[in-house]
Write a protein that binds this DNA or RNA. Structure first.
Lengths: 247, 247
DNA sequence: AAGTGGTCTAGACCACGAT
DNA sequence: TCGTGGTCTAGACCACTTG
């Protein structure tokens, strides 16, 4: 059973989507919501904090909360799994390994995966598709302790995250993502069936276990026009930082 | 004076940066932190929630909190102002208006700004530079009630956000950002001094007042290699949603 | 001045992870 | 089993916005 504050958050989301609390309008006061749902004020605050973090409502001391918009944001888990996201959006995800091999860790690998330079890592190149069209080129580097499990995966694997969970109970818990744009190189163009120099949205990711141990890092390149990312920010709290130059 | 929970969050951030709580290690328990800072457990939880949202620590029921990394994340306010971000990063920002004119709102304008189609809006095209180099093309559409103030701005304005705050006390409080990659068009290429077809990182933004009233929306295109964006996510809470197709 | 959200407390119980 | 974080309560006071 979901926590009470999550139930309330869901109820509020639904009310906003149904226009019960119109965009540009105001939410009831905390006191009123406490009474309506028969919970303490603290629980109501937990619920509205979730909507605030999603950018659906705005909050300022002294004034009533404002409805900013009704994002659908198929939310959660989505960043960790291309396949799960695709499924949630009603698309079909495919995946195919182009090549994979073990090699010694470069200095960059070592830094990102918190291992020693020269330690063995597994490099994988995958093409992933949406509804039959190739949309994404994934260049992954896995830490050695993950290599065996990854090599056991079938060449055509729909969801890597799901397969690794089923196989060895691996959970991808945390991630960091750096986003920029690059031109398609020769290999990119050939595998994604686009022209060389076409714009690609690049996401460089780093993933860890729930205990904070680095699992892999990846350079993902999305074909322009197929996928975009959305972020909400508000005064005094934004989850996104702009960075200068290449890094 | 900052709130107690913010002071504690700052102290923890600093302790992490100094290696007192090493990356991959664990944070003290809530109870211990309560005792150390002489506050209630609730206040400690507010503090660590901030670090969790920043992606610096990981949290799971039953296990101690884990230190994931020490991001510097020049954070805050940065998404709302190119100039403020540049300044914080030690760069010099410039801005120049190429053209600006009033016109009736299209259906798209009307939707985004929550106004009626045909109502007058102000369209502005600006080139913005970093340390002398043009890096960003901004196509803004302002709601009519903002138009006078925007037209009063000098053609070479370093910080629009700052100038509008100084002039009329305008605060840009909330924003939504959709990120993807596009190829430079003819106008893009000419004004940014790059080749046509070069990859650009595109951010489409929508900004509102603290009361939730739409101020403007904008199509920003960054020259590849000059700026990137970073996002942290964790299981059960991510501020970022992947979106399909153009929207 | 009244209303509302932000902060903080002190305590209780539960769910999950580690041992 | 024990320790830890997650949930929830009930109440107090403060800071800010609004009329």
């Amino acid at each position: 059973m979901a926590a009470r504050h999550e139930e309330i958050a869901d109820a509020l989301r639904q009310a906003i989507d149904l226009g019960e609390y119109p965009v540009g309008g105001m939410l009831p006061t905390e006191t009123e919501l406490s009474a309506r749902y028969a919970v303490s004020r603290g629980t109501v605050r937990q619920a509205v904090a979730a909507l605030t973090a999603e950018g659906r409502i705005g909050s300022r001391q002294g004034a009533r909360r404002v409805v900013l918009g009704s994002r659908r944001s198929q939310s959660f888990a989505e960043l960790r799994s291309f396949a799960q996201w695709a499924k949630a959006m009603g698309h079909t995800a495919t995946g195919r390994v182009i090549h994979q091999f073990r090699r010694p860790a470069t200095v960059e690998d070592a830094q990102r995966l918190q291992i020693a330079p020269g330690e063995e890592v597994l490099q994988v190149l995958r093409v992933r598709g949406l509804d039959g069209e190739p949309v994404l080129l994934e260049r992954n580097v896995y830490a050695q302790w993950m290599a065996d499990a990854v090599e056991r995966l079938p060449a055509e694997c729909e969801s890597v995250v799901q397969a690794l969970y089923d196989d060895i109970g691996m959970i991808f818990a945390y991630g960091e993502h750096v986003i920029d744009a690059v031109a398609a190189g020769a290999e990119d163009a050939r595998l994604l069936d686009i022209r060389r120099g076409s714009p690609l949205l690049r996401i460089r990711r780093m993933t860890t276990t729930p205990a904070g141990r680095p699992i892999e890092w990846s350079d993902d390149r999305y074909v322009s026009g197929t996928v975009s990312f959305a972020v909400a920010n508000s005064i005094g709290s934004n989850p996104l930082a702009r960075q200068s130059g290449q890094s």
